[in-house]
Amino acid sequence: MVTEAPYYHQTYQESDVFLHAFRNRIPLLLKGPTGTGKSRFVEYMAHTTGQKLITVSCHEETSSTDLIGRYIIKGAETVWVDGPLTTAVREGAILYLDEVAEARPDVIVAIHSLTDHRRELFIDKLGETVKANENFMLIASFNPGYQRGFKELKPSTRQRFVALNFAYPEAKIETEILVNETGVDKDIAKKLVSIGGKIRNLIELGLSETVSTRLLVDAAKLIHSGLPKRLSCHVAIVEPLSDDEQARESLKDLIDLMI
């Protein structure tokens, strides 16, 4: 259970969409680049609805067995242990599949029957079909265009969800987020947001990912705790973004100029 309300600044009608999707038992897909608040939004809404939240961070080795469950040896017995998906289906929890496009294809196959009118999970190892609890909700997130389309969701999968698009917030809101998250001075927060805006427009550097709100929050935390401003920006923004020496020097020059 998310016992404390996470700070979240609504920029659209995300909460309304979530609540209506929840009431109508419709899966929800969150699209957007890393660090734009997708996971924070899910935590915020889990707290708002009072629902248990189970989060799975998907990667290339995540399989349907990891989600559904497996037999394990316990003493002299072989016992079945439910995975996070089965647990959420039985108990009526929110299951959040973070970066679902990174998972193996069999994961998508496993959740198909939960994303339409059936709302049921077939566990082949048990020969059992589990009807989803009425409070079960499936949420997935992914980063469209990540690594130039290397990992994408098929249209047949995407059309099983209603979707929300997450983008970097406008400057005023992003400044408020930095101040609320870190306690940093508002003028410094404005400078960091301005740096973020400049870097996001530097497409000529060929960065695979641009600066996220999360990175700006990290820089603000370091500054607020007493680390010099330029050094904070270099280690929290420049170094995580690129290993290319020329790109890093360009980013450092930009930050030095603006700080």
Rank of each mutant, 00 (worst) to 15 (best):
V2S: 05
P6H: 06
Y7A: 09
Q10G: 13
H20S: 15
H20A: 15
R23M: 15
L29S: 06
T34D: 14
E43H: 14
T49H: 14
G50D: 14
D66H: 15
L67A: 10
G69T: 12
Y71C: 12
Y71K: 08
K74Q: 15
V81Q: 14
D82C: 11
P84C: 14
A88P: 06
G92N: 01
I94A: 01
I94G: 01
E102S: 09
L114Y: 01
D124G: 03
D124A: 09
N133A: 07
E134H: 08
F136L: 01
A140G: 10
F142T: 02
R148W: 06
F150D: 14
P155A: 01
S156G: 02
R158W: 04
F161V: 03
L164T: 05
Y168M: 10
E174Q: 09
V179A: 04
N180P: 03
E181C: 11
V184I: 15
D185C: 03
K190E: 13
I199A: 05
N201L: 09
I203W: 08
E204L: 02
L207S: 03
S208I: 00
V211N: 08
R214M: 01
R214V: 01
K221V: 15
S225H: 13
C233L: 13
H234N: 12
V235P: 07
V238P: 07
E239S: 09
E239Y: 07
S242Q: 05
D243N: 11
E249K: 15
D253F: 04
L254D: 05
